[in-house]
Every structure is written in structure tokens, then in C-alpha cells.
Amino acid sequence: MMSEREEELSLKLFVVLSRAMQAVKKRVEEDIRAYGMNPTEFAVLELIYSKGEQPIQKIGEKVLIASSSITYVVDKLENKKLLKRKPCPDDRRITYATITEEGKKLMDDIFPKHKKTMAEIFRGVADEEKQKLIELLKKLGYFVEAK
């Protein structure tokens, strides 16, 4: 059984974590929108830019968006000529999303700026504290997922 103090501290942690996440998310979304994309489009394009072509069916789990939204997002990026679909030569059920030359040029231009913005957002936390936060948040996530 949890103590009253542990319950109160856990509630406070939830509120502080939620508010911090809202503030960070707002700044990140502002940055991404400045490049003419929404956060979901950026996440999909960044995944393919960083990791190479991806099966469309697997993108959702990698960028944490509903699989039902993936086709719509890929369509939008394809209409902007940033991605293209490529059929798998070995399995007709699989279609890859691959970055176009135009998409690569765009990401070559904006990704370093985005990276700098991320550094600016987290500048208020020392490198050692960032590492500790990463460890603690992973620990929390693993604990919650195991429940």
C-alpha cells in the first residue's frame, strides 16, 4: 500500500511532467509548422530521411501515430513531392515510402535548424541532467508498460 506522501508526490510529478511536456510540445510544433508541415508529416519525413525507405505498414508504430492515419500522411507528403511510394519487388503486399530528391533537399536544409531548436528548448537542462532524465523517463515508461 502506498503512503499518503507517495500518492501526493506522484500526483505532483504527473502535473509537472504534463505541463513540461505541453510546453516542449508547443515549441516543437511551432518550429515544425514554420517549415510548412504538421508534426505528423515531419515525423514521417524525418524517419525516412534518417532511416531510409520504410514499409508504409510499419511507419505508424515507429512514429507513434495510428496506422489509419499513415496513408493520409503519406498521400500528403507524396502530393508535396517529398515522398514517393515504391512497391516491394519480393512481396506485392508491401509498399515502401521513400524520400524524393526534393524531400532530401528540404530535410538537408531544415533538419540542422530543427536540431538547433531542440538544443535551445532543452538548454535549461545540463547535459548530465539530460542523461539522467533520459534514464529516469525510460525507467518509468518500462515500468508502466509492464503493468
Results as ranks from 00 to 15, higher is better:
D90S: 13
A97N: 04
L13K: 06
E61G: 11
N79P: 02
R123I: 01
E78D: 11
I32H: 00
R19M: 14
E30Q: 11
D108A: 06
Y96V: 01
D75E: 10
L106M: 13
R5V: 15
K115R: 11
S69H: 06
T100S: 09
V74H: 00
M118C: 03
Y96F: 12
Q22Y: 07
S69C: 11
Q57N: 11
L83G: 03
D75Q: 05
M118Y: 04
P87N: 03
A34W: 00
K12T: 13
N79C: 00
P39L: 04
V15W: 14
Y35H: 14
K84D: 09
I70K: 00
L45N: 02
N38M: 01
V63A: 05
L17E: 12
Y49S: 08
K139N: 13
R5C: 09
T40D: 12
K81M: 11
R27A: 15
Y142W: 05
D31L: 10
K86R: 14
K104A: 12
L9G: 02
T71D: 02
L140R: 08
Q131T: 06
K84E: 13
A23F: 04
M2S: 08
E7T: 11
M1N: 09
M107P: 00
K76E: 12
T117C: 02
I99D: 06
I56E: 13
I94G: 03
T71I: 08
V44G: 03
D108G: 06
N79D: 15
G103N: 09
I99M: 07
L82R: 03
D91L: 06
L64E: 13
I94K: 05
A66M: 09
G60K: 01
Q57P: 00
R27G: 09
E120T: 10
M2Y: 10
Y49H: 07
K132L: 14
L140D: 04
D127N: 08
R33G: 02
L11H: 10
I121D: 03
I70L: 05
L77N: 02
R27V: 13
K81V: 07
E53T: 07
R92F: 09
E4P: 07
A126M: 04
S50A: 14
Q22F: 14
G141E: 05
K115P: 01
A126Q: 04
S10Q: 14
Y72Q: 06
C88E: 06
K84L: 10
T95H: 03
E129P: 01
M2Q: 09
P89V: 01
G60M: 01
D127C: 00
